[in-house]
Design a protein around this nucleic acid. Structure first.
Lengths: 128, 128
DNA sequence: CCGCATCCTTTGCGATACTG
DNA sequence: CAGTATCGCAAAGGATGCGG
């Protein structure tokens, strides 16, 4: 489970933060909203910069929180897929809001952009 | 300024996270959306559980990021007020999305609620 | 009233090595 | 492939005391 906050549990915003309490979880969500189902190793590559420790830990907590679902295929070699539960998918508006805001921000503050490539890997558009 | 993320700066979601990278900043924003202007000491009481170190630090970073504006009244005793800039206010949809999701979550998972008081201090409704 | 500086404990998290 | 286990540093953050 995600760590509890100091904050009052009856505040809806604090409740939401307590489940999305790290950058990695949000980025994993973003990835799983783009690709409905992804394997462990795929996530490790698509969520740039994440270590397997943080990936494993985040997936554990998100699973315990009912945001993510783990599916094991009884094969050799092992095959595990992760997908968002309905609860997880219901967070889409939050991610969309973040995406929209970030886009506007980058548009009006081009100097904050760390790369000058085209905005590939865009959240709102599916990739090939 | 907020600490930079490992993640690619061209991702809008990662950009947003890099500015809202702690629970405290989000809760401060929530407070300043409820009350357009608040003093340091008011924030310290309204954002339950925050230490002055974290409050000061968060306000500094948010000011440097252009999310929050600091206004000093040249009086004795000192009087300082903080308010959201336009940029900060434009994050309202993100907070709203978090609020809505948290509300639905608490409605369907009443056992997650840590208090059984009425949901006072609600984000969407102004207080007296 | 509004902070800043310092100390000190706790936590986060990467690196690395090892298993089913 | 998909993890687990352990170590060790670095950052986060609380407590306390001082200063404009």
């Amino acid at each position: 489970m995600a760590k509890k906050l100091v904050q009052d549990g009856s505040c809806p915003v604090a409740t939401t933060i307590s489940l999305l309490n790290s950058q990695w979880k949000i980025l994993i969500m973003r990835e799983l909203l783009l690709h409905p189902s992804e394997r462990y190793s795929e996530l490790q590559h698509s969520v740039a910069g994440i270590s397997q420790k943080m990936l494993t830990q985040s997936l554990h907590e998100m699973t315990a929180d009912g945001i993510v679902q783990r599916q094991v295929f009884p094969e050799v070699p092992p095959h595990v897929e992760y997908r968002l539960t309905e609860l997880g998918q219901s967070m889409d508006p939050i991610l969309k809001a973040m995406h929209n805001w970030g886009n506007q921000y980058l548009a009006s503050h081009p100097e904050k952009r760390r790369t000058n490539k085209q905005p590939e890997n865009d959240f709102a558009q599916k990739r090939p």
